[in-house]
Design a protein around this nucleic acid. Sequence first.
DNA 1: TGAGAAAGTTCATTACATCA
DNA 2: CTGATGTAATGAACTTTCTC
Length: 206
Amino acid sequence: MNKLEDQMALISQIYLGGYPQVAPQQAESKPRRRRNKNKGGENNLSMTKKRKLSQEQVDLLEHHFGNEHKLESERKDRLASELGLDPRQVAVWFQNRRARWKNKKLEEGFSKLKSDHDEVVLEKCRLESEVTKLKEKLCEAKKEIQRLGERVDRGSSNSPSSSLTMEAMDTPFLGEFGLEGYDNVFYIAENSYNNIPGMEWMNMYM
DNA sequence: TGAGAAAGTTCATTACATCA
DNA sequence: CTGATGTAATGAACTTTCTC
């Protein structure tokens, strides 16, 4: 099982589809039994009383966790005697620490995805605004072509072949309007952006 | 090679300590 | 006192490893 993949899948699920109500594994299994609130009765209260670990203990545990997140039984026993703790406490501390580490990683992954998404949205806005500007320039170019055509037609109305149309124009002409390098734009048929992945929105401008 | 026991892990939750 | 938060501890389910 690839843990990182699972985490990223979970992040994607969280980010794209919201928090799942129930993990699939849990949804199919029996409901978990509630813990008994009376933790074994009064007689072992002192034994089960929760004890906060000292800063030195936590520091050493953190140090070992930094080296290796897994805890082999030999290391657990050694650490436990070194810290004056029950091996079970050391195991529990590592379990909880792994859970905290995992949550932190998930949060980091989520933040990264969110900032990537924000960046893409920003870039999309920028490109849309660029498209709008180019459309305006194109519109101006068409008007200019029409004006020139009418002027030529008036000058030699008896010569139909001299009529200046968009179809007859050489594309380098567009350079006058700052449209060099965009020649290919004019070879994409209107409404054909549906065929280009991610460019469907272009038809809004056509 | 399959079954099952033992020991480990994760996950969800509870209970307690602490602090504002 | 109270609610929020952090964390030690628990129990169930699941997984891995070992033995026969």
